[in-house]
C-alpha cells in the first residue's frame, strides 16, 4: 500500500466530512447531503458510501481505480439553520465539477463560506418582528395589535438569541422566548389594548415555529430516509411543545 496515496484519500475524506456535517447542521435534507457529497467525491475521482444520522456522519472513501480506502465518523456541529451555507456549498459542488477544483481549493472555499457574516442582529430582530406583525395581520389583527406583536416578537427573539449564546438547552431557549413574548402580548390582553388582543397573543409566539425541521422531516420521509425523517419530526414536535409550554406559563400567570 502506498503511503502518500492513503494520505490523499484521508485528505479527501476530511473535506467530505466537513461538507456533509456543515450541510446537515445548517438545515439541508438528508437526500441533499448525500447528493452533494457524492457529487464532489465523484468529481475528484473517489467512491463514497455514507451513513447519515442527525447527530453524526460516517463515510467510507475509496479510490475509484485503486485499493486505498478509509472510514471515519464525525459529530455534526450544533449550529442553527444557515441557508447561506447550504446554497454556498451547493454552488461550490458544481464548480468542483466544472472548474476541476483541487482539495486545497475546496477547503479554502469551505473556510470562506463558514466565515461569511450573518445579517446584522438589529436587522434580523426587526424583520422577524415584522414577520410576527404580518402574522397578526393575516389572522385578522389590526392597529395596536400589530404593534404589540412586533414588540413581543422582537423581545422574544432577543431572549432566544441570548439564551443560545449562554448555551442553554435549545428547547429551554424556546420556552424562555415563548414565555417572554407571550408575557408582553398577554399584558395587552390584560390592559385591553386594541379590539381583539387575543390575536396578538396567538401570533406573538409564531416566530418560533420549527418550520425547517418539520418540512425537512416530511421531505426525508417521502425521500425514503425514514429514520432521519422521524428524528427531525420528533425534534420539531418537541420544539412546538416548548412553544406551548412557554405560552401556557404566561397564560396561567395572567389567568387568561
Amino acid at each position: 500500500m502506498n503511503g502518500s496515496n492513503i494520505h490523499k484519500v484521508k485528505e479527501v475524506e476530511e473535506m467530505l466530512l466537513d461538507v456533509g456535517t456543515l450541510l446537515m447542521s445548517s438545515g439541508a435534507s438528508t437526500g441533499r447531503v448525500r447528493t452533494t457529497v457524492n457529487r464532489i467525491a465523484e468529481a475528484l475521482g473517489y467512491d463514497v458510501e455514507l451513513l447519515i444520522t442527525s447527530r453524526s456522519l460516517m463515510l467510507t472513501v475509496t479510490e475509484e481505480n485503486g485499493s486505498d480506502y478509509t472510514s471515519s465518523v464525525r459529530r455534526t456541529p450544533p449550529h442553527g439553520v444557515n441557508f447561506k451555507l447550504v446554497s454556498g456549498i451547493s454552488r461550490m459542488s458544481w464548480r468542483v465539477i466544472e472548474d476541476k477544483m483541487t482539495v486545497a481549493q475546496i477547503n479554502e472555499d469551505i473556510n470562506r463560506l463558514t466565515s461569511l457574516p450573518h445579517y446584522p442582529r438589529l436587522v434580523i430582530l426587526s424583520l422577524v418582528a415584522l414577520a410576527g406583525a404580518s402574522f397578526c395581520r393575516l389572522f385578522g389583527g389590526e392597529g395596536w395589535e400589530l404593534v404589540v406583536t412586533f414588540v413581543a416578537s422582537f423581545f422574544g427573539l432577543f431572549i432566544r438569541q441570548e439564551a443560545l449564546k449562554k448555551s442553554f438547552n435549545p428547547y429551554l431557549a424556546i420556552v424562555f422566548a415563548s414565555f417572554a413574548a407571550s408575557m408582553i402580548a398577554g399584558l395587552s390582553v390584560k390592559l385591553g389594548i386594541g379590539d381583539t388582543p387575543e390575536h396578538a397573543l396567538a401570533t406573538s409566539v409564531l416566530f418560533l415555529i420549527p418550520g425547517v425541521p418539520l418540512i425537512n422531516s416530511l421531505t426525508d420521509i417521502i425521500d425514503g430516509n425514514t429514520l432521519n425523517g422521524i428524528v427531525r419530526g420528533v425534534n420539531g414536535f418537541v420544539m412546538a411543545f416548548a412553544i406551548a409550554l412557554g405560552l401556557m406559563f404566561a397564560m396561567q400567570i395572567y389567568g387568561i
Binding site: 424583520l127 422577524v128 414577520a131 402574522f135
Partner: peptide, 22 residues
C-alpha cells in the same frame, strides 16, 4: 394580505440567513 404574506416570508428568510440575492 398578499403583502403581509410576503413580509412574513421575508422575516423567516432573514432568520435562516438566506443569501441576499434570494
Amino acid at each position: 394580505k398578499g403583502i403581509w404574506f410576503g413580509f412574513a416570508a421575508l422575516g423567516f428568510a432573514v432568520l435562516f440567513n438566506v443569501p441576499q440575492r434570494a
